[in-house]
């Protein structure tokens, strides 16, 4: 398929996944705020820090109020990663390849785009209504469901899923990292009911609470980290995402095992490291540091995919060299 089309499908996958994860980010805090003891302030700063866009936030706002945080994460067109911008970019990508996406996908994406713009018009960040994020999430899940049932499993599908899983791996690591940034009032609070609350909220935000309970039983930080980073079954764990992304790369290149290009080599290496890691290795490295290097390596994989499949020769420059 055309490199440009593959590129657009990849980013369509990334932007829709990003939008969904940002609505999940916001959910973490909504979940938390409902259970917080009276007098305990909501912490929006850790959330902003975990997105990696704190610098941009400080350029635009002068305090971590709920209103500012929600506007920034969801509705601000000045934030390159806000839900609004991700949805707009997803739609732009789909528009450029209208002939390659199903009509139903286009219609849902269109609807979501108008939903976001209407929300901006009525300054939705001022409302305390968590329901709108649920709606955004539902619309994005509808998009996934339709795609799953209507897309042919050809190269285009695998580029789209590759983008989605790489994005999800990155975002799961960032959601987990929120916990690192959340400040407990004192060291003694580790393992306290408040700490417990934080962890539960985190699990709920990745729709992983019930499944976690089934697999591990009680809330235990090391188990949660294992669940989100290394678990083989949970579809949002970093290991799971990398495994799926690697499969996509193999489908695209027709490689049966091992690697046939640098992108496959990079992802295969990372995936197998996680496969043979246990939770002690993670904590030995330091959770935050561990997540940080994962994010960097996922980024490198994305770059390698670009080099391998999307990069096109500028026809004008080539021509100039020929002459």
């Amino acid at each position: 398929m055309l490199s440009r089309v593959a590129d657009s499908l990849f980013w369509l996958g990334r932007y829709t996944e990003r939008a969904e994860n940002y609505s999940r980010f916001i959910d973490v805090n909504f979940n938390l705020s409902m259970d917080l003891p009276p007098g305990m302030a909501e912490q929006w700063q850790p959330l902003i820090a975990a997105t990696g866009d704190e610098k941009r936030f400080l350029e635009l706002y002068d305090g971590y109020s709920r209103e500012n945080a929600i506007k920034f994460l969801a509705f601000d067109k000045e934030n390159d990663n806000s839900i609004l911008v991700s949805v707009t970019k997803a739609r732009e990508n789909a528009r450029q390849i209208r002939e390659s996406v199903s009509k139903e996908i286009w219609e849902v994406l269109n609807d979501l785009y108008h939903f976001m713009n209407n929300a901006v018009k009525r300054s939705a960040w001022k409302s305390l209504d968590p329901d709108q994020f649920k709606q955004i999430k539902y619309k994005l899940q509808l998009l996934q469901g339709i795609g799953y049932d209507t897309s042919p499993r050809t190269q285009g599908w695998y580029f789209n899923k590759l983008g989605q899983f790489l994005e999800r791996a990155d975002k799961t690591s960032r959601i987990l990292d929120v916990k690192y940034h959340v400040l407990l009032p004192s060291v003694e609070e580790v393992g306290s009911p408040l700490d417990f609350l934080h962890w539960s909220a985190l699990l709920k935000s990745v729709s992983g609470f019930n499944a976690y309970k089934k697999l591990y039983g009680k809330i235990e930080p090391s188990n949660i980290v294992e669940y989100l980073v290394l678990n083989v079954y949970f579809p949002r764990s970093i290991f799971y995402c990398l495994t799926e992304a690697e499969k996509c790369l193999h489908e695209i290149s027709d490689a049966k095992r091992g690697y046939s290009n640098p992108a496959e080599k990079a992802i295969g290496t990372l995936r197998s490291e996680l496969e043979y890691a246990d939770i002690n290795d993670v904590f030995k490295y330091g959770l935050h540091e561990y997540l940080d290097q994962l994010q960097r390596r996922i980024n490198d994989i994305s770059t390698a995919v670009y080099e391998q499949y999307f990069k096109i020769q500028p026809n004008f420059a080539t021509q100039a060299q020929d002459q």
């Binding site: 490199s3 190269q155 020769q313 026809n315």
Partner: peptide, 21 residues
């Protein structure tokens, strides 16, 4: 069929090619 823009196409030896994956 593919929908292409100018940037997807390239010429070599008087032939036109599209840049695919």
């Amino acid at each position: 069929v593919e929908l292409v823009t100018g940037q997807d196409l390239i010429t070599q030896d008087n032939r036109v090619y599209m840049q695919t994956t």
